[in-house]
């Protein structure tokens, strides 16, 4: 690990200001992804601002009837919250499908959104990677792509976003709240939060340098049968090949998002509209324009079959 200096921030505004004009500085919360990457020198910050003591660890009702989840709420606590289990079960299920008990105890809501891809070419510093080292090329395009994206990628990058939580939040239309270094706040719909790679895959979110996530807000509960189904190479503690987050209403309408297929949680309005027509129509709308590689073309059929299983569970 490269040397760095360390400070504990006392307020969100202090934390944001501490990173302003300091491109080699990073916030650290749970640290479960950042420290992993620092040990490999994929991340090499020269200064860390510890944001664990900002009082952003509460889950509170909003005046509109939704929930405001503090950025520092741990994945375990969010999944176990009685209101989330009752009204946003798809979020609880998605969180519990991710990582291990030890990691969920440490990982935070904001950090989960900001985790980096697990693409093997990003992790292997002997390989080219446009995300890790812009302009160096992409080893995955002609390489091992089983875990990687079939849609939303580019000729620069086909990395997937690894989060389960974010897929459920996409289906729930969550909003990311932030504070910027100048003290101003903004609210970013989760649909607009993550960027597609294009020819700048090193830019992963719309956050500015020093912009700190303070909370994620969920709109009022939408009811319905809520399902999160994750298909992976082992039954526990593995990243998704395909995951489906769905909210299914008794009249056949609903909303659906996919994980494991794209550089961000993947949701398409036409796929929501196709829900009454069944899994094939939904998969076709979600994966319109897909560009799979030989190693991951199976994901197209797997997505349709997983959607079929989810719709069957929704009807049961």
């Amino acid at each position: 690990m490269r040397a760095f200096t360390y400070e504990r921030a006392a307020t969100p505004q202090d934390a944001a200001a501490a990173l302003a004009g300091h491109p080699q500085a990073r916030f650290i919360a749970g640290g479960t992804n950042l420290l992993d990457l620092m040990k490999l020198q994929i991340e090499a910050p020269t200064h860390l601002v510890d944001v664990n003591h900002l009082g952003l660890d509460r889950i509170e009702p909003t005046p509109e009837g939704g929930l405001r989840i503090g950025a520092l709420v741990r994945n375990t606590d969010l999944a176990a919250d009685a209101r989330v289990r009752r009204d946003y079960a798809v979020l609880s299920r998605a969180l519990l499908a991710g990582a291990s008990g030890q990691l969920r105890n440490k990982a935070t809501t904001a950090g989960n959104l900001l985790q980096r891809t697990r693409c093997p070419y990003f992790y292997d510093t002997d390989q080219p990677c446009n995300k890790r080292q812009p302009g160096s090329g992409c080893g995955a395009l002609q390489g091992y792509s089983r875990q990687l994206a079939v849609i939303g990628g580019s000729e620069s990058c086909i990395a997937t976003h690894p989060s389960d939580m974010a897929v459920a939040m996409r289906a729930l239309d969550a909003v990311v709240e932030t504070i910027r270094a100048d003290g101003s706040a903004r609210a970013i719909p989760i649909a607009d939060f993550h960027l597609l790679p294009g020819d700048t895959p090193h830019l992963e979110t719309v956050l500015e340098q020093g912009e700190l996530i303070t909370a994620v807000t969920l709109p009022p509960p939408v009811g319905g049968r809520q399902v999160y189904r994750k298909v992976r190479d082992r039954a526990s503690y593995a990243f998704a090949l395909i995951s489906v987050a769905a909210v299914l209403q008794p009249d056949g309408t609903g909303r659906v998002a996919l994980g494991g297929v794209a550089p961000k949680p993947w949701r398409v309005a036409a796929a929501d509209a196709a829900l009454p027509q069944g899994a094939q129509a939904v998969a076709s709308a979600l994966l319109q324009g897909a560009a799979p590689r030989p190693d991951n073309a199976f994901k197209l059929l797997l997505a349709e079959r997983t959607l079929a299983a989810v719709l069957a569970e929704g009807r049961a």
Binding site: Y6, I28, G31, T32, L35, D36, L48, D50, N52, T76, G101, Q102, L103, N105, K106
Partner: peptide, 13 residues
Amino acid sequence: GRRINACLSLAVM
């Protein structure tokens, strides 16, 4: 009281 991976946490935190 909560289990974590001690390898993925800084002592100063």
